[in-house]
């Protein structure tokens, strides 16, 4: 058995590394903050109650860590999201999330409208329990209306 496995990484894939996506608009609203906070089991009222959030010095209901609003998607109009929109293509159909890293530079609160742009920072290959896998690292930068970076999300997903 000397035959080498063919690499999953193609020149086309290498070509999309570093390319920036179209920006996606994210709306942070009261219901979104509450729904996210409820799903995680939070009881701190700053995620649910505007008066409580303001009493603690926030401008509005606070977005819990990991919540940067929901993307605005208008059928037929919004730009497609995700690595495929950058031209990343693979025949591997299955997807798993590899990791998540949120770094905050400011508070995110209800009423914020953020724009996120994504780029692929690395594509690696690994042999795992599930067979041959592609590990794709991404970096998404979220900016507020004034253009200030409020959060950088570094993520990775696995195709297998």
């Amino acid at each position: 058995m000397t035959q080498q496995k063919e690499s999953l990484i193609t020149d086309e894939m290498r070509g999309v590394i570093g390319k920036e996506s179209d920006s996606v608009t994210y709306e942070v609203d009261n219901t979104g903050c509450r729904q996210f906070a409820r799903a995680v089991g939070y009881t701190d009222p700053i995620f649910f109650d505007e008066a409580a959030a303001k009493a603690r010095g926030y401008r509005a209901i606070v977005a819990p860590p990991g919540f940067l609003g929901h993307p605005v998607m208008i059928p037929g109009k919004s730009a497609p999201r995700g690595p495929e929109s950058l031209g990343f293509q693979t025949s591997l159909k299955r997807v798993l999330n590899g990791g998540t890293d949120y770094e905050y530079f400011a508070n995110v609160c209800s009423g914020d409208v953020l724009t996120g742009t994504m780029k692929i920072s690395e594509i690696a290959e690994r042999e795992g329990r599930l067979g041959q896998m592609l590990v794709v690292s991404t970096e998404t930068t979220y900016k507020d209306r004034a253009g200030k970076t409020v959060c950088i999300m570094r993520g990775g997903f696995i195709r297998y």
Partner: peptide, 29 residues
């Protein structure tokens, strides 16, 4: 995976109290 990340964020938020801030949460699945 992201729910596990969010639960880690919740643990940190509940620990740092009203005067603390969670700045970075990173994990691998």
């Amino acid at each position: 995976g992201a729910l596990k990340h969010a639960v880690l964020g919740r643990m940190l938020h509940e620990w740092v109290g009203e005067k603390g801030r969670v700045q970075r949460v990173a994990c691998q699945y």
